[in-house]
Design a protein around this nucleic acid. Structure first.
Lengths: 240, 240
DNA sequence: CGGCGCATTGAGGGCGGTCAATTGGTGTGG
DNA sequence: CCACACCAATTGACCGCCCTCAATGCGCCG
């Protein structure tokens, strides 16, 4: 069930069979969510952490005045709110972008595992640190890239992350976002997202129609985005 | 020496005296850096992690074309590159903004400590998760706030963080940034940083002269920034 | 005194915002 | 099967924030 998660964990040195079994053993039964549903509420204090099994979720912050910002998108295999294991309160909500399946790990059990298996604890720690690396990278994207580069960057990142979990098909992938949601991810208005997508289409770089993205010219997209996948940390670590 | 770090750690349940001694015991002698000096290089693979004792540092990313983005500022007591304990390569460099003192913890020793003291390991993990929370928050600032709100937000955050380590004086604090550096932090041009500062000055909210900031109207500043310190996690956690 | 780094100011322009109307696709009830 | 509602995508007009370029002021140091 959590193979994708175990794959991500194994980048920080493969966990032992015992550790895998132990982790799998504390996961609760599958839960399902439909598009738009709030999976975790802002300001709540979860007693368990959620692994996304299928679908796509977003970390959503709602500001004064009602504008929203999505600070991260989650793909299958992601431990959506592992940071809540350490932090008392959620600083954002988690919303299902389409139909999703999840399983959860109770914090009490996680704590027991971490006490017993220090390397597993570090591998989980590693996941949250990769998350932070992605956040940092998006800060530079927001600070120093224009709209078209941001959009291209999002598509590059999602393609790489989805490919990693086997959810791409020859440059195509599902992207269950309306243009308004994409604006919330990119820090743009929905109108401008539309214009940017059209620009990418006009340049024959990408098509994005009906929740489906097709990358037609990867090199051009990477160039527009100034994309370098290093920050995603998909290359296995070597514990020194 | 590392009292400020221990204070931050203790927010995630106070470490035992034994844990404190153990951590203090692995720190290397004090190292000094001068303004502008590169403390850790982008793409390097550090074998130790650095604690900032005094001064201010920034995490700097240099982009194609030479533009820069500072993704975070570090204040005394911060574990500047603790994430490098888990991640093989630095995705950014760390630069001293003024004269700084540091001490470091060798990764091999850290690993030994984490194996032996699971709660200490979690407290360190907690520090990196707070970092990520700050990153996430800045994503919303970049995505949805205009220039003056960003600048105000930076000043609010720094005042709170510096106050926490006892480095403010009645609304005043040292801010060793040129306006150009502030632009690299805020994702703005140096010129516009200047105009925004003048605007804050004109509104009698803040003065910022010669590396020294004086907040004259905290409430107004908070209002402009739409600032809420929750994301800084300065309130102690309760381990449940 | 001259050089240098930083702050400040002005002019002009473009990126991306808002507002509002239109198109088109999908689903539903009659 | 069609009418209608609804949501998402698209388009146009207009405008303001923040950019770039460039010049000037100012404090400090050699």
């Amino acid at each position: 069930m959590i193979e994708r998660l175990l794959k991500k964990l194994s980048r920080y040195g493969p966990p032992s069979a015992e550790e895998c079994t132990a982790l799998a053993g504390i996961m609760t039964p599958v839960r399902r969510f439909s598009a738009g549903q709030e999976v975790i509420q802002q300001y709540s204090a979860p007693k368990e952490s959620t692994v996304l099994l299928s679908g796509m979720m977003g970390r959503l912050v709602t500001l004064r005045g009602g504008t929203q910002q999505i600070t991260a998108l989650q793909v299958p295999g992601d431990f959506v709110d592992l940071h809540a294991f350490l932090l008392a309160r959620m600083d954002h909500s988690v919303v299902a972008m389409n139909a999703c399946e999840t399983t959860t790990a109770p914090h009490s059990e996680l704590r027991r595992l971490c006490d017993r298996y220090p390397r597993l604890a570090r591998a989980l720690w590693y996941l949250t640190v990769v998350d932070a690396s992605i956040h940092r990278h998006w800060i530079t994207v927001f600070g120093r890239r224009d709209a078209i580069a941001r959009a291209a960057h999002l598509l590059c990142e999602l393609h790489v992350r989805l490919e990693d979990v086997g959810l791409t098909d020859d440059g195509q992938f599902e992207l269950p976002l309306t243009q308004a949601h994409a604006g919330d991810v990119l820090g743009l208005s929905a109108v401008h997202v539309n214009r940017v997508i059209q620009e990418l289409r006009a340049r024959s770089v990408v098509t994005w129609d009906r929740r489906r993205v097709q990358i037609k010219d990867w090199d051009a997209l990477v160039d527009i985005a100034e994309f370098d996948a290093t920050y995603l940390q998909l290359v296995p670590q070597v514990e020194t």
